[in-house]
């Protein structure tokens, strides 16, 4: 069994009386693509953010590559972790190239033009786009730049919080597959938060279902489709399955 790159030990996060995460233990192996699925408010996004300390746990600890993240310098930690999220957050006053190069720039390095071109290629954007401003891009193009920015500093870990939630279905599908390929090519460890079980099943090799701050199912996509994981997980799997069945009926 490969070493876990990420471990959560007894992690809880309380907002007043409500517990967003409830004494959660979890280990994630290097190289895996993990999807965190659950309804809104299940705590999946909060859990993800405890890794790069956008959220500090109330109790418990998160270890990344052997170190407790609470003890790591914040800026350094975040530069080692790629972060992609739904609202993208491109800096509107910076060009595509400047957005992509921001991480290394913060560390006092200049990202070579070549590397920026390469990153754009990875996310299937034209090299000519480097000088564009974010408001000149489509939503899909923006999230592609967002992914390129997350990968610029050669992170080992990629965190994605509803990364494709705001994209149209076609773009969403294409970018999802692209990210899965990059995950393999670059040997990343990827954790993706999504409320879309179909997306989780198709992209991840391990699906965690969360409910009320706990993990209620931890399965491979294959076993989930085969009916494992319990009631909550199966309720989520039922949605795409039902859709697939109706589509099959239509073509019959």
């Amino acid at each position: 069994m490969p070493e876990p790159v990420l471990t959560f030990s007894g992690v809880s996060k309380a907002y007043g009386p409500t517990r967003a995460i409830d004494a959660l233990d979890l280990a994630i192996e290097a190289g895996s693509f993990v999807a965190l699925v659950g309804a809104s408010g299940s705590g999946k996004s909060t859990l993800l953010k405890t890794v790069n300390r956008l959220v500090e746990p109330t109790t418990g600890s998160v270890t990344f590559d052997g170190d407790d993240v609470a003890g790591l310098p914040l800026a350094g930690l975040r530069r080692r972790i790629g972060y992609v999220f739904q609202s993208i957050g491109l800096f509107p006053h910076m060009s595509v190239a400047e957005n992509i190069a921001i991480g290394p720039r913060l560390a006092g390095e200049r990202l070579p033009e070549d590397r920026i071109g390469k990153l754009l290629e990875w996310v299937e954007l034209d090299r000519e786009m480097v000088d564009r401003m974010p408001d000149e891009l489509s939503g899909g193009q923006r999230q592609r730049v967002g992914v390129a920015r997350a990968l610029a500093a050669e992170p080992q870990l990629l965190l994605m919080d509803e990364p494709f939630g705001a994209l149209d279905p076609v773009t969403r599908d294409a970018l999802g597959e692209r990210v899965r390929k990059l995950h393999e090519e670059l040997g990343l460890t990827t954790v993706m938060v999504t409320h879309d079980m179909a997306e989780a099943l198709l992209l991840a090799d391990r699906v965690l279902v969360m409910d009320a701050g706990r993990i209620v199912a931890d399965e491979t996509p294959q076993s989930l489709v085969a009916g494992a994981g319990g009631e909550i997980a199966q309720a989520l799997v039922a949605v795409p399955r039902h859709q697939a069945e109706r589509l099959a009926e239509l073509s019959a």
Partner: peptide
Amino acid sequence: LDPGVMEAAAGVGMNFRQ
């Protein structure tokens, strides 16, 4: 300020001054 942009600023590892 767009909260998404502020989240990105934190996410890429900017400190207070940056």
